[in-house]
Write a protein that binds this DNA or RNA. Structure first.
Length: 406
RNA sequence: GUGCGUGUGGUGUAACGGUAGCAUAGAAGAUUGUGGAUCUUCAGGAGCGGGUUCGAUUCCCGCCACGCACC
């Protein structure tokens, strides 16, 4: 559906030497951006509010709902791409800003782009770097123009603008780029959050402008904010939805508010998002809350929660999380009936021992299990949606989890 | 065998004639657009015996253990 861009000579139509736009596209890119914008998301099935769809990207289709493991520094900790493929992980998310610090965009570009560099040839999302505003060690200050960060490695100050963020994400060659947003800490007052919402909207518009001159095949998702305030959430949803973006993400959640508050924020926003747009809940990794979010129409998730818990010895099971350290004499699998590599080959005792003595194999085995758990849960959710029985699936799944849940 | 020195949580250390502190390891939590980070809470100690003293982990004596030197 796109012109073959390789047949056309490179040309510069964008505002050359503009102070914030780096134009690296060509005639057809530019035209495609302006006039051809087919939806890259296909809705396939619905069950109540839950949806099953397909996201089309440069690196293949990804069936939704889906959960992305996080590979901030171009690696999902302790996992080989092969291992991810085997678990049917079709999308991951890396952090564009952090990669721009190390190893640097030039190095990845010369290495053939992020996919080739890390040898993962399925869909890769990149986060803009906005979330690092929450990092006390990195944030220097922030205003309408830009965010200033301190490189945690070198101490050197870096300025991140929406334009630069797009440039970086384009340089990496991500399938889906995220707009730069302003993420306020949980608990900030109304006026502060209102300011963050306004800034996030302005930055999204600047991202769209900057992106027009880059790569039409890279998708760009906008991000909503609004804390736990109803009118701000609604306003942000409407505003981001009306922008010409390929998807809408819900930001500033899963950062300290309760599960109920998060679901409520979604409920305020979802009615204002077009049905043909993919909806991405950023940072959510609790299995039970993911099911609630799917139930009301979310499609995409990412979180370090399953992998970080694995490394700390908290393993997910259908009956709730277990602390592996208390099973030093249990020679059964982490979860009976689990089909993951770890459960098929190793005991709870062995995994507990490896984690205790800090053998890296322990981190791998634990991570494999938790990621497998996530993939299996979401896969079952998709099946349930296709069979139009998501609601009962969800109820039964949640009933099995201990009251404490995950 | 003789002389000197040292004995404080599992480990490494601090102070002190009057509530034994710190670090680390340990346990339990927290962990959600990742620093294998960090935070919170809990638990755990004077080598043994005697003496001086109102009171000894501290001062004295013996024993034991360890270290060093000498024989």
């Amino acid at each position: 559906m796109f012109f073959d861009t390789t047949k056309y000579p490179l040309g510069i139509l964008g505002p050359k030497n503009h102070n914030f736009v780096i134009f690296e596209g060509n005639v057809t890119n530019y035209i495609n951006c302006l006039f051809l914008k087919p939806s890259m998301f296909e809705l396939k099935a619905e069950s109540g509010g839950a949806r099953c769809g397909v996201l089309h990207t440069k690196h293949g289709k990804v069936e939704s709902p889906f959960y992305m493991p996080v590979g901030t520094k171009a690696a999902v900790k302790n996992m080989l791409p092969e291992e991810l493929y085997r678990m049917n992980v079709n999308a991951i998310i890396c952090n564009a800003f952090i990669l721009s610090l190390r190893p640097g965009i030039d190095i990845i570009k010369q290495g053939g782009g992020i996919h080739k560099y890390m040898n993962f040839d399925r869909c890769i999302f990149t986060d803009s770097g906005g979330f690092q505003v929450l990092s006390k060690t990195m944030l220097v200050d922030l205003n309408d123009r830009a965010i200033r960060f301190r490189d945690p490695f070198s101490g050197v100050k870096q300025t991140l603008t929406p334009e630069k963020s797009i440039q970086i994400q384009h340089g990496l060659g991500a399938d889906v780029a995220m707009c730069l947003d302003d993420v306020p800490h949980y608990g900030r007052d109304y006026d502060y959050i209102a300011g963050a919402v306004k800034r996030t909207h302005a930055w999204a518009e600047r991202c769209i402008v900057a992106k027009k001159y880059t790569d039409e095949k890279q998708l760009l998702f906008g991000i909503t904010q609004g804390g736990t305030f109803k009118d701000l959430r609604e306003k942000s949803a409407k505003k981001i939805n009306e922008m010409k973006l390929d998807g809408v993400a819900f930001g500033g959640l899963a950062i300290g508010e309760s599960k109920e508050q998060a679901v409520q924020a979604l409920n305020w926003q979802l009615p204002h998002i077009d049905k043909d747009k993919p909806r991405y809940f950023m940072g959510l990794g609790s299995p039970d809350t993911i099911l609630e979010a799917i139930d009301i129409g979310c499609d995409i998730f990412d979180s370090v929660y399953p992998t970080k818990n694995a490394r700390r010895g908290t393993l997910f099971t259908g009956n709730g999380p277990i602390k592996i350290s208390s099973f030093k004499r249990d020679y059964g699998p982490i979860e009976e009936g689990c089909e993951c590599y770890t459960c098929k080959n190793f005991s709870r005792s062995y995994v507990a021992h490896l984690l205790f003595v800090k053998e890296t194999l322990g981190l791998r085995l634990a991570t494999i299990h938790n990621l497998h758990f996530m993939q299996k849960m979401i896969e079952d959710a998709r099946t349930a949606i296709k069979n139009n029985e998501f609601s009962t699936f969800k109820q039964e799944f949640l009933k099995r989890l201990k009251p404490k849940a995950l």
